[in-house]
Design a protein around this nucleic acid. Sequence first.
RNA 1: GCCGGGGUAGCUCAGUUGGUCAGAGCACCAGAUUGUGGAUCUGGGGGUCGCCGGUUCGAGACCGGCCCCCGGUACCA
Length: 474
Amino acid sequence: MTTSPRLSRGLRDLLPDQMLARQQMIDTIRGVYENYGFVPLSTPAVEFLDVLSGSAGAEAQQSIFRVTNPEHEELGLRFDLTVPLARVIAQYSERELPRPFRRYQVAPVWRADKPDKGRYREFIQFDLDSVGVVSEIADTEIIAGMCDTLGALDVGGYLVRFSSRAVLNLLLAFAGISAEQGVDVFRVLDKLDKVGVEKVRRELMNGYVDESGDTIRGVGLTSEQVDRIEQFLAIKSESRREVLTSLRELFAHVENAPAQIDVIERISSNLYVLGYGDDRVSLDLSIARGLAYYTGPVFEAILTEAPQFGSVFGGGRYDDLVMRFLGQSIPAVGASIGVDRLLAALTQLGKIGKRKATARVLVARMDESLEQEYLAMTWELRRAGIPTELYLGTAKGVGKQLKYADQYDIPLALLYGGNEHAEGIVTVKDMVAGRERAKPVADRKEYLAQRAGQVTMPRAELVDGIRRMLAELE
RNA sequence: GCCGGGGUAGCUCAGUUGGUCAGAGCACCAGAUUGUGGAUCUGGGGGUCGCCGGUUCGAGACCGGCCCCCGGUACCA
């Protein structure tokens, strides 16, 4: 009896073409973050359960993967990178980790949720956070970083929308809603994009029964309270300045409103100064974010060419997350990219290269007596920084080896047999040009005779010649 | 979690009232073609018909249970 090769649901392998796409994306993001001067951090996949659990609600607890160890400690796999960051901040002194601590982290996280389209139980997050900065310059920097990252990824159009939990708290005061109800209100408002105003209104009041027969429990607000929420949500403009003006008018009599609105005004103003205009960053008061732990500005980014993928990049300020470890709050603000979700979106938009190989050159082995020549040429190219694969399979024929290059999309094949050896030359075949030129040829003999896409060059000029050909392919 | 639709070759799928129904196309491999990936032709390998049980002389098909996938919906730190 053999073992059936399989994976538990929600888990997947990434084959080389998928890994190359993911790595390319991660490298681009890392480039932006390091350009901003953030530093990398790694934490273990496994944490103590109580460390993970603190900020999570009851249903969040359910989706933690439990882990056992020989000591029978209560452990789990991390479900995000923010909680481990909070642990690190609390655990290391300022001597070891001087503040502000600005770190990036790219790593897998695990959630034992029901898998869905594009949603797995293991996925990569790429986080960017500033810890220890009260000033909204840190928030500005995160939002700008989101813009620059999406720009560098060449995602096409994008829009970073931001709002503020503090402003939403003003709304609670304005509408006479208690803090406990506020949590539910934010959760429901977060669905606005997805389900529309009408359903949100009903869910905020008495609830309803949806098309599938499910009962949606209502929050229990009065009609007057919902009216006030709708007045707030009615503040919409492509101009951040206009939104701020309207907001000040609406909350003219709400206590503390000017100070909180000043915060987002400064962020907006900073962004204008840096050239992040209304076309890329919008002040959208309907942004709430599901997470309970946000305390200040919140933001999320959508792709304007693929809005159905929802928020691909989200974050906010969470000043109290370290509280439960240290008993005191430390200001923090950050954002997280759903790498796999964004990758899925970019793949669908056709913006991801479909590389299958890292090699740019395949050295074919055509004649056993020339074995060491093949080795020598391969290492010559490698030492010149040209990614090169020496064909290691058992096929003897050139045809098989070219087919191999074809299957892996290796653009150049180096052919060196007895003929080339005798003349002191090498033959290099451009696979793409070869394919194009062979297309109209129906006759086999003619096809073979034309040696499509091939050039020869002196053996001594191998490296320069290949380099030139690769440069032309770009 | 709930509603609906599915599961037959690597992929997409056909399979009649239960009785040569283990099939097609594509892909793959080999040969035609011993130094050329394409095209063409010829040949070939491949399946626990999702799993377990039941009905039947006989089940891919019918019945029951389970698993998984897809669409919708809910949840999502």
